[in-house]
Design a protein around this nucleic acid. Structure first.
Lengths: 341, 341
DNA sequence: TTGAAAGCGCTAACAA
DNA sequence: TTGTTAGCGCTTTCAA
């Protein structure tokens, strides 16, 4: 099959190729008769518009780039799912790039997107990112640019995040209300806004309820199921007294939960456990894992909605960046459901 | 920031713009001196190649399109993760499209990809797909085209799948070896190759072990957690005698498992349960859910590897399509681990 | 309502 | 080793 262009259609109908172009684009100045015959011929010849040529000439692109750390993390694939859905409904295509949690990957992704002349970029920052020059490059080109979930406060970039501080506060306060008093918090060794915010919420909730903030109850590490188990083992070895665990995310919480059960500690009677993210397994395990829901669906939709507004705005970089902050939701399950004191 | 083109660099250095283009593309005929000064100037001016123009002119694209039913299904996001990783390492970008399990969506995705002149298309078929004309269109244009997981046998299209028949056989045979004799199979109402194959494996395993195939033990429906629960309820209501459940996928198996536990049926002592897909929660629930692992990592890699070969082949459509079939792995967990008879 | 013509930024054949 | 030139397929201005 040869490539069919507007010239072929024009030749077939013996009209100018620019007329064909206009007819296909539903230009108001073209007669219905012409439009009909052009469309019929296009169909018959198997014509497909060449978006490459169209983009080059018009300087417009209907492709947007999304950079996520990894699609293997359900939170990200879920948000991308939401964004793709809505952007697609609005006529945009999605170029996808995984940074693999490295700054180098992130930089390469941005360069690829810049070269591809995307209409805009949506990103969630990699763990390994320490400098911001690659993001600044996007801003310098005045391309619509949005962070979701893992944003960089220091940059003047619009963002859609959830209130991690509040999430940490809610989780901790819930434990306190259930009567737990010596609450362990497992957090990340590397500093990342979302995790330090969750910890800040934890600390403030303790203070609010006149509970002491005990440094021995705050554990730093690489988050993972195994690290959660390890935390419990170490707490027990050092005979640290605790009656609840708030982990920075669900896998770590799950590890803690498993190790507690392995030690024949009763959950939630003896020790309560709560995670963060409300992963799909949280509802399926026994006991059900309490967690903080991150509103992935809403986040995707909010990100897409804000981004569409940004794409349509023409004074985007003249206004202060809009920051949408979603409300985290406390999900109470069996792992913290003890009859409170 | 103005758009910088090779003309700007040429003007700056007072050389021909084609020399600039060659220098940037590391053309062998250009002197190192020129290359160096061109690159230095490009860097200084903030030049970025316009891939749109490059693609239009060369007729080559380094973008490939992937169509999946939904990124919200961890199996698909996991495979896309693998494909993106490898294609990216080989210099390709990924355009992503979700069909939302509808044929209409699938068709739209293909049209978008065709218009975008992607170098090739990788797809996993939507549940709702009943006709194949939209796929035929890809073949007609002789574009590299590959199915993964959900392939259409009737079309002459290369594919990477797992051996669903064998998966069904393995699951069923495992149950039989554990001493279960009256094995329920929950399958999908709509006919889809992967599910009918799993059922064929179930039937053949029963026959191989001289067990009767009882139609009352084969349940058809929409797969979901709720449907799994419903199946158990109906079996009990109708007082059907059974001692094991093999569900077409893990969520349905999980629903069955939950309902059994709610009825105080002991798993695995009274009834064994096995799923399919080895979702991440299968290892985390109690009792652990036995399952068939689908090798998502391997599937992504195999799909990318085969596709790269296809992209490099120039007589792609002259040879019979290659079909890679991966081996499913039986994962035994507590839900079927009874001391066998 | 339609046509003619220019040009988006690049690649590549041909010439020098 | 470099320059000249002709498009890739389209959008869009200007003219008819």
């Amino acid at each position: 099959m040869k490539k069919v262009t507007i010239h072929d259609i024009a030749k077939e109908l013996d009209i100018a190729f620019s007329t064909v172009a206009r007819a296909l684009n539903d230009h108001p100045a073209i007669s219905d008769t012409t439009k009909r015959s052009v469309r019929e011929t296009a169909q018959r010849l198997g014509y497909r518009q060449n978006k490459i040529a169209s983009s080059l000439r018009s300087g417009q692109s209907n492709t947007i780039g999304i950079i996520v750390p990894s699609l293997d993390v359900s939170f990200f694939s879920s948000v991308v799912h939401g964004i793709e859905k809505i952007m697609n409904e609005n006529g945009y295509s999605i170029l996808l790039y995984q940074s693999n949690e490295s700054q180098e990957g992130e930089k390469k992704g941005i360069e690829t997107f810049l070269d591809s002349r995307v209409a805009g970029i949506i990103a969630s920052v990699a763990k390994g990112t320490t400098t911001y020059e690659h993001f600044a490059e996007i801003q310098r080109r005045r391309i619509p640019f949005l962070f979701f979930d893992r944003a960089i406060e220091a940059l003047q970039v619009p963002s859609v995040t959830i209130d991690d501080y509040k999430g940490g506060f809610l989780a901790t306060e819930h434990l306190i209300r259930q009567g737990y008093k010596r609450i362990v918090h497992i957090t990340a060794r590397q500093s990342m806004d979302i995790f330090t915010e969750r910890m800040r919420g934890y600390v403030d909730a303790l203070k609010r309820h006149d509970l002491p903030v005990d440094e021995r109850l705050i554990l730093y590490g690489d988050f993972s199921l195994d690290f959660g188990r390890q935390c419990i083992r170490e707490l027990c070895q050092h005979e640290v007294d605790f009656d609840a665990v708030f982990a920075l995310e669900d896998f770590t919480a799950m590890g803690a939960l498993q190790q507690l059960l392995a030690y024949n500690v009763r959950v939630p009677e003896d020790v309560g456990v709560i995670g963060f993210a409300n992963e799909s397994f949280a509802a399926l395990v026994t006991p059900g894992l309490s967690s903080i829901d991150q509103q992935t669906e809403e986040m995707g939709e909010a990100a897409a909605a804000l981004f569409l507004r940004m794409l349509r705005s023409d004074d985007l970089y003249d206004n202060p960046p809009q920051r949408v902050v979603l409300e985290p939701h406390l999900i109470v399950r069996a792992s913290t459901a003890r009859n409170s004191a």
